[in-house]
Nucleic acid binder design. Structure first.
Lengths: 221, 221
DNA sequence: AAGTCCCTTACAGATTTCTGTAAGGGATTG
DNA sequence: CAATCCCTTACAGAAATCTGTAAGGGACTT
């Protein structure tokens, strides 16, 4: 079994519960837990330097903001940094996120090794995932049904930038002006119009209000 | 200290973490934990019948749906049922919800005794909350700032009817026509305009898109 | 090099949104 | 009863939204 595991999870209750269960169900030599991404990353770096690197990282995706300044703001940033630092590291994500698209992109972009949804069976699955990953297999929570991944078009950064401003009540003209000021391209009213019209098609929305409402309800923005 | 505590929380990891911490930090005689609202409620009923009722209920608000059929679908339904069954029961809510409006309504409508936000300090706060509630005081996570509670006006049925149609992408003219067909009064475009304008003021929204987005995010529609 | 595809941009016209003014009516109050 | 308040409605003008056409340019293919 893994000799050295790092757990990053900002909810104190969850954090302790996971650590407790893993220690109980698996024979572990070393399991550290951290409440902040930055601290977790520092631990990875130090361990690597001291030639006793971590073998497995278990991390959440969302880390709540508080008064502590931070460079790494989310689990995916931590994962990205960790992958760059130590490509051999095994990574299991343990999160509430249950959108197959997002989960899929974690496997594709960051080569994570396992994904477990938080929930009633979360702990049982996590133990299973650790075992699977230890044997160089991947694990995905069955509820995700990742194979039958849905074909909904993803929003890109530009889409999201526009939608964010519209959600805040700016007009398209104002969005265009703001983008010009902030040197975001493209930025013509016309292009912004076209982008939104395309989203109407993709999400079967009738107007901006309808589009933003739908996306908000789906948690996409 | 409380002699008999019931914990309802559907995330296995969190559930175990909380139970562990409470047993460690407080001198408890009896602490049971349940993953389902219905089971938790049954426990309350049985205990009351056997004349050794629970003294404190700690519950989450959101309980994920799974294959198991259920009557009580959320923490607030559990709280309502529990209050009706056993008015003397102390209740602490432990949830991610951080909207002061919703939290406030729990105190007003269900007379809960404490509210703790999940998060990095969640466990420390929860222990503190249990102690406070034991001494017949209430506890609210400081981050909520509930005293400066917002005075936001509630939506009435007519507001909601308009907003629902706008969210579905209808224009104001179409909403007016629909209301006329369905004999909903008032129904002139003008009145609908006025209602929405009033909501702009009340919710500090700049336009319909902004208003709907805000309300969707606050979970009001 | 020519053809094709797609993105960016400009522009224009019809429709919708938003705001303000104003009139009428019901309910309440002094 | 008159004064007042608030809701409903009509109307009108400025601004914004939405849709379509069209031109230019970069990337990619044949």
């Amino acid at each position: 079994m893994f000799k050295k595991i790092l757990l990053a999870e900002d909810f104190q209750g969850e954090n302790q519960g996971i650590a407790e269960t893993l220690r109980e169900k698996l024979i572990l030599e070393e399991l550290q837990n951290e409440l902040y991404c930055d601290k977790a990353f520092t631990r990875l770096k130090v361990a690597l330097k001291n030639t006793v690197p971590y073998e497995l990282l278990i991390t959440d995706l969302f880390f709540e903001k508080d008064h502590v300044d931070r460079k790494l703001k989310s689990g995916s940033e931590l994962i990205k940094a960790a992958r760059a630092l130590q490509p051999s590291l095994k990574i299991i994500v343990h999160s509430m996120e249950n959108n197959p698209i997002h989960v899929n992109s974690l496997f594709k972009e960051h080569k994570i090794n396992g994904y477990v949804c938080k929930g009633r069976k979360g702990m049982l699955e996590l133990v299973k995932a650790v075992k699977e990953v230890y044997h160089n297999r991947t694990y995905v929570s069955p509820q995700l049904n990742l194979t039958a991944a849905n074909n909904v078009v993803e929003l890109d950064d530009f889409d999201r930038a526009i939608l964010r401003e519209l959600a805040n009540g700016l007009t398209k003209k104002e969005v265009s002006e703001k983008f010009k000021q902030e040197k975001i391209t493209p930025n013509s009213e016309s292009t912004i119009d076209k982008r939104i019209s395309r989203l109407y098609d993709e999400y079967e929305a009738k107007n901006t209000t309808n589009l933003l409402f739908k996306l908000a309800k789906e948690g996409k923005i």
